[in-house]
Amino acid sequence: MITELKNIKKSFGSTDVLKGIDLTIEDGEFVAIVGPSGCGKTTLLKILAGFERPTSGELLMDDALMNRVPPEQRNISLVFQSFALWPHMKVKEQVAFPLKHHRFVSEAFKKQPDVRVEEMLSAMSMSHLADRYPHELSGGQKQRVAIARALSPAPALILMDEPLSSLDAKLRIELRYEIQKIHRQFKKAIVYVTHDQGEALAMADKIVVMNAGKIEQIGTPQEIYYYPETPFVADFVGKANLLEGTWDNDQFSPALSPNVSWHFPKVSTSFKQAGLCPLRPEQLKPTADNQHGIEVEIQNVQFQGREMIYTALANETQLTIVSDADTRIQIGERLLVGT
């Protein structure tokens, strides 16, 4: 199923929450929607689910207009942040429930629901807990059940609303892998709303970056990270140093050291027009070349296992620099850094 949003707008009273969203979700695609709180990403998810109707624009699923179609008549499933498991049902009953009530369940699944339930529980490594109740499960296990339940009717589109945000760091990493695995195995389209840019970069085929009710950029994780189109995207998805300076085609000279020239071939026109250059922390490295380095003083050092994170000052401009753990620079040390 191909899902299309065409100039979707949504207002609550005088507040415009979505300001013209154009987006296509291909069959089997994993799309992550990221953005700061209040940017409209959850409202967009609710419109896809049918919990909200757009004020204007069109929502199409396989060319059928869905603006006023209620949730139960859409070929979708949802995974919530809060798990939303029924306390009186065993794990296997939770997963079996959509097979009885989802409108688009195939006849094969209806005839052999136990086979489908076992397939889903096995996919989420939960078969041994089939007879447990929710209160007997950990947070990670509850979310695995919620994902198995969403998958069981084989929907064309799965909507996930920050499904890992309530889990600890180790569990989030484990479930990232599980979600990626089931996406590859079952090839269902997933729309995944998250405030965690790391999750989006690690898991998605396509990332949608939203800000103030609009889409700032759509692209692959690599495109979003290495070639941001706006200062907002550069700063929001992975920290970026935004240096002021001047551009001459693809050559950038930072205002901090006008005699220095760096070559960047794929920087967006919006940065050049603003006199800015986005530099990822790992792009800045110590150098002995006066023609390619700016002088900084190290203000702070953070050890992060495989890498070191340095906060540095160049005149009054604060920069973040990341290097491998073998590079050791002391607080107060002055050095040249370049690209």
Score class of each variant (00 low, 15 high):
93 E>Q: 15
106 S>M: 10
113 P>K: 10
177 Y>A: 13
48 L>R: 05
155 P>I: 01
106 S>T: 13
115 V>N: 14
116 R>C: 08
58 E>Y: 07
150 A>W: 04
185 Q>H: 02
111 K>C: 13
70 P>Y: 10
143 Q>A: 11
154 A>M: 12
134 P>R: 04
132 R>T: 05
175 L>S: 06
146 A>F: 04
105 V>C: 07
48 L>K: 03
119 E>F: 15
75 N>D: 15
128 H>F: 08
72 E>L: 07
50 G>A: 02
78 L>P: 00
105 V>L: 09
50 G>T: 02
138 S>N: 13
151 L>I: 07
62 D>M: 08
45 L>T: 07
127 S>H: 11
128 H>E: 15
131 D>S: 09
175 L>W: 01
97 F>N: 05
65 L>W: 03
45 L>H: 08
170 K>G: 07
111 K>G: 12
122 S>H: 10
106 S>K: 12
85 L>F: 09
47 I>C: 01
104 F>P: 03
56 S>A: 14
122 S>R: 10
86 W>P: 02
81 Q>G: 04
171 L>R: 01
54 P>A: 03
104 F>T: 02
136 E>P: 10
102 H>K: 10
171 L>D: 03
99 L>Y: 11
148 A>N: 08
71 P>K: 12
146 A>S: 14
92 K>Q: 14
73 Q>P: 04
156 A>T: 06
163 P>R: 11
50 G>S: 03
160 M>C: 10
62 D>R: 09
110 K>G: 09
90 K>L: 00
62 D>I: 03
46 K>D: 10
